[in-house]
Design a protein around this nucleic acid. Structure first.
Length: 575
DNA sequence: GCCGTTTTCGGCCCGACTGTTTTCAGTCG
């Protein structure tokens, strides 16, 4: 049981309260659930050390919620939730993942049509039963069907941001098994693909038995799919499948190539081997019966006469023929240009965000809270922005070793104008612009709108350019090549939003930018301290696109960055 | 259910958008 489990339970309670028309209780639970999901300290430990009282010291937690958390920690259950579930036994998590279906809709759907999950929802929608319900119509029925389509196409695949932490946890545990000398995460995760179907882990060990039994007996295993001498598969309680294989040292490199993939890459490699009258499999590269390489990846590629491609580029395209430009490295970024704080919809204070960024080794961090037309976030108007600038001045004096840049995530209005005056934008160090509404404009309208915003001399970066949310919302209709060309023409930097739900721009779009000569930034879009470590997801996407360090703004040291920002937009360049 | 330099009771971030309606409920962020 960790913070996420507790957070999930509180979310569930909140959802039910919403259904039972208790909006304020719901909001109270929701708030705590949100803050716990990115809370740095272990709640269970806080409770064990200081009891219920210490829970109540956390902002947002009072007597009631402290009791709920206590009950859950002690018994693993929450009676109130169970009794509400009895009244309305629906698969809330599944139904809520359909866009446009909220708690109230779920309530009506259950009461009128006994809809419990996506399967029964789909049946009812296809039968035209939903459009007849009060407050529903033909359009809402169609919207639900579209949502189900989306749900089905992305089911079974996990976001990189979900799969990678799980894979690392398992890999770390396996490293502690005696006799284990090496553990690597392979598969699509190693290639930094934005989603993964499963987790592949490769182990080099003298004692395969111990590895297999430790792995299959994990607490987070829901059931064992296979348990063999060198290979086991399990399904975790999270729903994701994990394969672990144990291989001998002399085959580790060949196995790592094989299990890293992609499938298409392996096909290319094997046909290359055949051309050279060799044979490649997961145990090694063979000349007849004699093994000529296998212990290391380098050795196998070298014996095939090619240089080793970074895992991110092993997609079965032209990676065997290509000479690789040096990709941006995971340690190359010196700062972050998109972060939100508790001034708007972030969780943590500016000071806390800055101190954490400093711990991460950043030389600078831009504070980019939302602006006024995003009222739901408490977005800043000109006055509030100026107040924030004064606070940043104070903090810059107080905190040494990192520069805080005054910024904003300015909202792009329907017509492409901005919701903050040019005068105030001019006072900021760095400004990002982003779309948060009117997602349904035609491609040409949407493209024109964004290009107009990019033409503003104060807009340094276009934030999350296509607006997608993985597994949830498609990107808005956009002519990406026009946007890229306009970025180059105006000197606007294109963001690679590293937030694991966004990864926006995506790899293919980054590639188009690379080809067109655009400049990029890689930012976390962090709304809490924990999210400040998301940069690696963006770097992974950048590497998949072949992006090199010298095209990325936040690889610059602070003085060079300041010089860049002091240059008029049109004249800016990185190379 | 939580909280207090506008309150220990009475509010609770709130505006846009959609699709349903004919003045509004639900969802989203």
């Amino acid at each position: 049981m960790n913070n996420k489990d507790i957070s999930d339970i509180l979310f569930a309670v909140a959802e039910y309260f919403t259904m039972f028309d208790e909006p304020f209780k719901a909001r109270a639970y929701e708030k705590v659930a949100e803050s716990l999901s990115s809370f740095d300290n272990d709640i269970r430990k806080i409770y064990k050390d200081g009891g219920r009282k210490s829970l109540e010291e956390i902002s947002g937690i009072g007597k009631g919620i402290a009791q709920t958390i206590e009950e859950y920690i002690q018994t693993g259950r929450v009676r109130e939730l169970e009794s509400m579930r009895k009244k309305m036994p629906v698969n809330m998590e599944e139904l809520r993942s359909i866009e446009g279906v909220g708690p109230k809709a779920i309530k009506t759907l259950y009461k009128k049509l006994k809809i419990k999950d996506v399967a029964t929802l789909k049946k009812a929608a296809l039968a035209g039963k939903i459009q007849k319900l009060e407050n529903f119509g033909v359009k809402s029925e169609q919207k639900i069907l579209k949502g189900i389509e989306f749900f089905e196409s992305s089911r079974g695949r996990f976001l990189l941001g979900e799969a990678l932490p799980i894979a690392r946890r398992i890999a770390d545990d396996l490293r502690n098994v005696s006799g284990v000398s090496r553990v690597e995460i392979a598969g699509s995760i190693r290639r930094w693909c934005e989603t993964s179907g499963d987790i592949d882990i490769l182990v080099e060990a003298s004692n395969a038995d111990a590895v297999m039994s430790t792995f299959t007996k994990r607490e987070d295993v829901a059931h064992i799919i296979a348990h063999g001498e060198t290979k086991s598969s399990v399904r975790l309680k999270d729903g994701i499948d994990v394969d672990v294989r144990v291989v001998a040292k002399k085959s580790f490199g060949a196995a790592l190539i094989y299990f890293t993939g992609s499938k298409d890459h392996n096909v290319l490699l094997r046909s290359l081997a055949i051309k050279k009258k060799l044979k490649l499999n997961e145990y090694g590269l063979y000349n007849g019966a004699r093994i000529i390489a296998g212990a290391t990846e380098e050795g196998v590629y070298k014996s095939l006469g090619i240089s080793i491609p970074p895992p991110e580029l092993r997609e079965g395209k032209n990676e065997l023929k290509k000479v690789f430009t040096k990709l941006i490295g995971f340690q190359d970024l010196r700062g972050d240009f998109q972060t939100q704080t508790d001034w708007t919809d972030g969780v943590d204070s500016i000071e806390a965000m800055v101190r954490t960024a400093k711990q991460l080794g950043h030389e600078y961090i831009a504070i980019t809270d939302h602006t006024k037309s995003l009222a739901m976030t408490g977005g800043s108007d000109e006055k509030k922005l100026r107040r924030q600038m004064r606070e940043i001045d104070v903090l810059n004096k107080k905190i040494s070793g990192i520069q805080i840049l005054k910024g904003a995530e300015v909202n792009i209005m329907r017509d492409g104008t901005l919701d903050i005056s040019d005068e105030v934008l001019g006072e900021l160090d760095i400004v990002g612009a982003a779309v948060h509404s009117h997602f349904n404009l035609s491609e040409s309208e949407q493209t024109e709108r964004i290009m107009r915003a990019m033409s503003n001399p104060h807009i340094d970066i276009l934030f999350h350019p296509t607006g997608r949310v993985l597994k949830k919302r498609d990107p808005y209709a956009l002519d990406i090549d026009k946007i890229v060309a306009h970025a180059v023409a105006t000197g606007t930097v294109l963001e690679i939003d590293a937030h694991p739900w966004r990864l926006d721009l995506k790899d293919d779009h980054i590639k188009r930018g690379v080809d067109a000569g655009a400049m990029f930034s890689i930012d976390t879009d962090a709304h809490s301290l924990a999210e400040l470590s998301y940069l690696e997801y963006g770097i992974g996407q950048a590497r998949r696109a072949g992006l090199s360090k010298n095209r990325v703004l936040n690889t610059l040291a602070l003085p060079a960055l300041q010089k860049f920002l002091a240059t008029p937009k049109q004249k800016r360049h990185l190379l």
